[in-house]
């Protein structure tokens, strides 16, 4: 399945783009393909094999926790949004 990952501003310096197209049958596969392409993302998003607790992942409008987590299957054209904590207002 070909899906789009929306990259938050904090991670754009690493990807150099605001959205990235990846292949994957599940959320886990898509995210692993994503970090394999940008290895500097690995530490930002994952702690070992697990997603860091302050990184939230959405499939379309729904958080994956309320679907089937990282094993949620993907369909062509799905949109994955990674939302890391934004804590500042300056």
């Amino acid at each position: 399945m070909s899906v789009i990952i929306q990259v938050p501003a904090k991670l754009q310096p690493i990807t150099g783009q605001t959205e990235v197209e990846v292949e994957g049958a599940s959320i886990a596969e898509a995210l692993r393909t994503f970090v394999a392409r940008y290895p500097d993302l690995e530490d930002r998003l994952f702690s070992g094999l697990n997603l860091r607790p302050y990184v939230r992942v959405y499939l379309n409008q729904e958080e994956i926790t309320y679907l089937q987590g990282e094993s949620t299957p993907l369909r062509d054209g799905d949109c994955i949004t990674v939302v890391p904590t934004v804590g500042t207002s300056g």
Partner: peptide, 24 residues
């Protein structure tokens, strides 16, 4: 939404990352 804060320093602040003045 965010049960745990990120480790200090892992998340840049506006002072470090910048912010478009109109955004706020």
């Amino acid at each position: 939404l965010y049960p745990e804060p990120p480790a200090p320093g892992l998340v840049p602040s506006c002072a470090e990352g910048g912010v478009l003045g109109i955004l706020p």
